[in-house]
Amino acid sequence: MVDRFEKRAIVVALTLVLSFFVLLVYAAKGLGADLPTCLPDAKPFKQGELIQLGDKRYQLNAVAKMWNFEPNEIRIPAGSTVDIYLVSTDVMHGFHVNNTLVNLMAIPNVVNYTRVKFDKPGTYDVICHEYCGVFHQNMVGKIIVE
C-alpha cells in the first residue's frame, strides 16, 4: 500500500508519540501530576474562605467573580498543604498560581479541585487567565507563604 520508506517513517512517528504518551501517563499516575476530574458530589458554594484543617493543612474555598477572588489574599506557613476548591459565581475565570502547577478554570456552578504544597516562602500571584470582562486584566489574588 505505502512504500517501505514511508512505512518506516510511520513506525518511527508512532513510536515517538506512543513513548510520549507512556511518559505522561507515568507522570500522572506514578508521580501524581494528574489533572482535575469530575466531582459529582461536590456542591457549588457561594462564600469563599480559608479553613485550617490541622497543622499546616488547609482547605481553600475560592470563589472567582467579576473581578476578584474571594478571599483575595491568604497567608499560610511554609510547608503547608492546601486543598483548593474553586468555583465561579458569575462568568468563566481562570486561577493560575504562578510558579506552581496550579492552573484551574473556574466555571459557574462547577467545582474544581486540586491539592498543592507550598514549600518555598514568598508571595505567589494568582492570575485570572480567562477573559471575564472589562477589568479582567486587574483580577489578581495573592497567596503569601511565610
Binding site: L35, P36, T37, C38, L39, A42, N103, L104, N112, Y113
Partner: peptide, 12 residues
C-alpha cells in the same frame, strides 16, 4: 484539561 466537571480518564 484544567477544568472540573469532566473525568480525568476521558481527558487522558
Amino acid at each position: 484539561y484544567t477544568e472540573g466537571g469532566l473525568s480525568a480518564n476521558f481527558k487522558l
